[in-house]
Every structure is written in structure tokens, then in C-alpha cells.
């Protein structure tokens, strides 16, 4: 049975010294093993939401809030954000600004050193994380001399070494070239298949539709939609009204809905192929 691992209950947030609510009464629940995509236009509150989930906001970096976020059964209001990093790992967009050490090996060890892991355990985890992220033969290179895709994979490895249950990726692929992007998506899929809960903020709607099972749509700090990906992307007009587009395949299919008469438009290329394969050419 799926157990809830993140429960957001009526959460609102405003940054320090401001009154504007960046998040307004947000509520949703994420279960273990989900793969959630968070979409929305810029300034919709996506990054703020991610930082709230790990307790950075408001507990470490200040701000005003209302409501509650419960991580793995414990309310952040009580723990003040302590211990969340054991459960949730977060990876940001600019990978290079997350590195401070001389070698890849030191970088993966860094978080573990901060949490007081023993050297034997660190060695084990470094092998595990670097293997999983395809960095096993780059351990003595400088993090700053890696390619964009390699840097993102290193950022993920650093979090993976702590073996969190949930991994949040805040626009981790926006700065990558297509090869780098594929590398990272491949890695994330592997991790999800191995049991991790993954939350991804991304602008690439096609990729989101391809990989996630649930979609959360944010606009001006409010939740517009939260449901299975297939269901959310049917609502093209509603999404467009909130500055969010649907996958190109879905868009095209929806325009042909009356002619072709299917119930649910495909959201990925693969689905489209199987849906359209069923249709025979009319007449001629």
C-alpha cells in the first residue's frame, strides 16, 4: 500500500520583510514511490515550494508562513526542519555553484563528513553513488572541470550518497545540452525504478509527460491541478489559461479529438504511436 511521505496542508509562505504570499494555501500529498513533475511558469512558486519541503524556508532562511508540511510523519513545524535532509535530498539548477571541494571524491564525501559518517561508510557510499551516476572513473577529477551533464550527475551523486527516500530536482536539466539532459533523465528513471520518490521541477513538458506519473501545476502560488499526468494534460484550456502548455502530441491529438473520437489524448510519443496505429486511412 502506498504510504504518504510528503503531506502539504494549507501551506502559505511569504519571504522575509515582504507581505506578498509566494505560496497560497497549497495542499497536496505525495506517496512513496511517486514520480511527481511540478510545472508552472516562472515565479509561480516552484522553487519556493521545493525549498519549503526541505525546511529551508522558513526555518533556516526566514520568512512568514501558515499551515503545515509533514515529512515522513513528522511535522516541520515541530522539528523546525531538523533531520529532513536524511529523508529528502535536493539538487539545484546551477550545479557548479554547489561544489566546494577539490576532487569528485571529496565532493561526494562532503555532505557525509558534515553529518559525521565514519570513513568506512563514506567509502562504501562513494562507490555506490559514483557507480550509480556513472562517475566511477572520474573520482580524482576536479568538479569544476566536468561537463554540464557530468556536473549534474555529480550533484545527484552527492545527494544519493546520503540515501534519501525522496529526491527533488529543481530545474536540474535546464542548463544542459540534449546529451546531458538525456544522461540525467536516464539516471533519474533508474533511481525511481529502484524505489526512490522523485519530484522534478522542469520546463520541458514533453520530458515531464514521458517520465512522471503525477503532475502538480502551480500558478501564482496556488495549486491549479494535481493528478495523474494523463488526466492533467487533457485539460489543455485550463492549463493554457495559467501559462502552462501541454505536450505537443497532446495538443495535436486534442485538436483532432472530434475527428478521431478517442477518450484520452496521448501525452507521449510512444502513447501517440499506439493510439494512432489503431486508425486506418479513410477512404482513398
Amino acid at each position: 500500500m502506498k504510504k504518504p511521505i510528503i503531506e502539504v496542508k494549507n501551506y502559505s509562505f511569504a519571504y522575509e520583510n515582504t507581505d506578498k504570499k509566494v505560496l497560497d494555501s497549497v495542499s497536496f500529498t505525495i506517496n512513496e514511490g511517486d514520480f511527481v513533475g511540478i510545472i508552472g511558469r516562472n515565479k509561480a512558486g516552484k522553487s519556493t515550494l521545493c525549498e519549503s519541503l526541505v525546511g529551508l524556508l522558513p526555518f533556516t532562511m526566514g520568512g512568514s508562513w501558515d499551515g503545515e508540511i509533514v515529512i515522513d510523519g513528522k511535522s516541520l513545524n515541530e522539528t523546525k526542519g531538523a533531520g529532513v535532509t536524511d529523508i529528502i535530498g535536493i539538487v539545484f539548477q546551477d550545479a557548479e555553484s554547489q561544489f566546494t571541494q577539490e576532487t569528485v571524491e571529496d565532493e561526494i564525501a562532503f555532505a557525509m563528513c558534515n553529518f559525521g559518517y565514519s570513513r568506512e561508510l563514506m567509502r562504501e557510499r562513494i562507490l555506490y553513488a559514483s557507480e550509480a551516476c556513472g562517475l566511477r572513473n572520474m573520482l580524482d577529477r576536479s568538479p569544476f572541470k566536468l561537463s554540464g551533464g557530468q556536473q549534474q550527475r555529480l550533484a545527484i551523486a552527492c545527494i544519493l550518497a546520503l540515501q534519501p527516500k525522496v529526491i527533488i530536482l529543481d530545474e536540474s536539466t535546464s542548463q544542459l545540452d540534449p546529451i546531458g539532459r538525456d544522461e540525467v533523465f536516464g539516471l533519474i528513471t533508474k533511481l525511481h525504478a529502484a524505489g526512490s520518490t522523485v519530484i522534478m521541477v522542469d520546463h520541458n513538458i514533453e520530458k515531464i509527460a514521458e517520465y512522471v506519473n503525477k503532475v502538480l501545476v502551480l500558478h501564482d502560488g496556488k495549486v491549479i491541478e494535481f493528478d495523474d499526468a494523463g488526466k492533467v494534460f487533457q485539460k489543455k484550456d485550463k492549463l493554457n489559461a495559467h501559462d502552462v502548455r501541454v505536450p505537443q502530441v497532446t495538443d495535436a491529438a486534442l485538436q483532432l479529438k472530434d475527428k478521431l473520437g478517442f477518450k484520452e489524448a496521448p501525452i507521449t510519443l510512444e502513447q501517440a504511436k499506439s493510439v494512432f496505429a489503431g486508425y486506418k486511412k479513410e477512404g482513398k
Binding site: S12, A14, E16, P58, F59, T60, M61, G62, G63, S64, W65, D66
Partner: peptide, 14 residues
């Protein structure tokens, strides 16, 4: 609705 506030300047962020 009354929102609670935390002042970051007293925390460890410094």
C-alpha cells in the same frame, strides 16, 4: 489568518 514569522538574521545562515 495570522502568519508566524522567523527572522533569519539570528540563525545559523550567517
Amino acid at each position: 489568518m495570522g502568519m508566524k514569522t522567523i527572522d533569519s538574521s539570528k540563525g545559523k545562515m550567517r
